[in-house]
Amino acid sequence: MRRTLLLVVSIAGLASACGRYAVRPNEKEFLADPVMTFEGDPQEASADDHVLTNREGAAGGNGAGGGGCGCN
């Protein structure tokens, strides 16, 4: 349990550090472009999932939105 907690804290710390220094605010021009976000077109994604659930037994869980410049 203690090891798991240590691992989680370490990953969160690394992610946080990475998040702070990976890209500066003035370097986020390209990341802010709509094609770089994972949100895309929600209706298109929903319709695609709808079609695939009729062909595949493993639909769902493709990830949430987000990405891009992180400047909401």
């Binding site: 992610a15 990475c18 998040g19 990976a22 890209v23 370097e27 986020k28 021009e29 390209f30 990341l31 770089m36 994972f38 769902g60 869980g61 493709n62 990830g63 949430a64 987000g66 990405g67 891009g68 992180g70």
Partner: peptide
């Protein structure tokens, strides 16, 4: 019942990564 956890990380000024865990 469906749960999902997602991490999105800017890796560089031109690259972004997302990992997601889904359970149902």
């Amino acid at each position: 019942d469906t749960a999902q956890a997602t991490v999105t990380q800017n890796l560089s000024p031109t690259m972004v990564l997302q990992a997601s865990l889904f359970g149902q």
